[in-house]
Amino acid sequence: MSETPPPASAAFLLMALGRRIREEVEGALKNEGIALRHLSALGHLAPNPGLSYSELARRAGVTPQSMQATLAALEARGAVARDTDPGRGRTAELHVTPEGTRLQRTAMAIIAEVDDRLRARLDDESHQVLTRALFTLFRGEVE
């Protein structure tokens, strides 16, 4: 007698799939010498040059110290430039450089490739339904 498998948990499936996708994207980004945290910082800073470390950290959901380390790595790579001298208590005037824009484009192309592989496993209607459902879930909060 075969047992019927338990009903699938949407939360568990989303977490497991998210972990797989994250690992795939992070692996490809590593080949470019960056990580998701770098992409996140660039993504928040590009449209808002001059944001403080604290504000960037808040938007990215990390500590200010972590954001400082992330931005220091991006600055060393030439992806972010500082228009003010570093110093305690000073607001850093940071902006994304052309190298940072190139890194963003490269990362977004990597993510698009992963998305294309996911999309290829679904018909158009299923993809549209899934995308709408994910947007609905993303806009709401888990209670």
Results as ranks from 00 to 15, higher is better:
residue 63 T to Q: 05
residue 44 H to Y: 09
residue 80 V to L: 00
residue 8 A to E: 09
residue 101 T to S: 13
residue 90 R to I: 13
residue 14 L to E: 06
residue 43 G to F: 00
residue 33 G to K: 04
residue 28 A to W: 02
residue 44 H to E: 10
residue 30 K to Y: 13
residue 29 L to F: 06
residue 71 L to F: 04
residue 104 Q to M: 15
residue 120 A to R: 09
residue 91 T to Q: 13
residue 72 A to T: 07
residue 75 E to H: 11
residue 98 P to K: 08
residue 36 L to F: 02
residue 112 A to P: 02
residue 44 H to I: 12
residue 82 R to N: 14
residue 111 I to W: 01
residue 136 T to M: 14
residue 50 G to P: 03
residue 64 P to M: 12
residue 78 G to L: 01
residue 94 L to T: 08
residue 134 L to R: 06
residue 51 L to M: 14
residue 129 V to C: 08
residue 31 N to R: 13
residue 43 G to K: 05
residue 106 T to H: 06
residue 33 G to A: 13
residue 62 V to W: 01
residue 131 T to L: 13
residue 110 I to Y: 06
residue 68 Q to R: 12
residue 9 S to F: 04
residue 79 A to M: 05
residue 138 F to A: 09
residue 74 L to Y: 00
residue 68 Q to A: 13
residue 29 L to G: 02
residue 13 L to G: 00
residue 116 D to L: 15
residue 83 D to R: 15
residue 31 N to C: 03
residue 129 V to P: 06
residue 138 F to D: 05
residue 12 F to V: 07
residue 26 E to P: 00
residue 19 R to A: 05
residue 118 L to C: 10
residue 36 L to W: 01
residue 28 A to E: 14
residue 58 R to C: 04
residue 138 F to K: 11
residue 76 A to C: 01
residue 73 A to R: 12
residue 121 R to E: 12
residue 123 D to P: 10
residue 60 A to M: 09
residue 98 P to F: 05
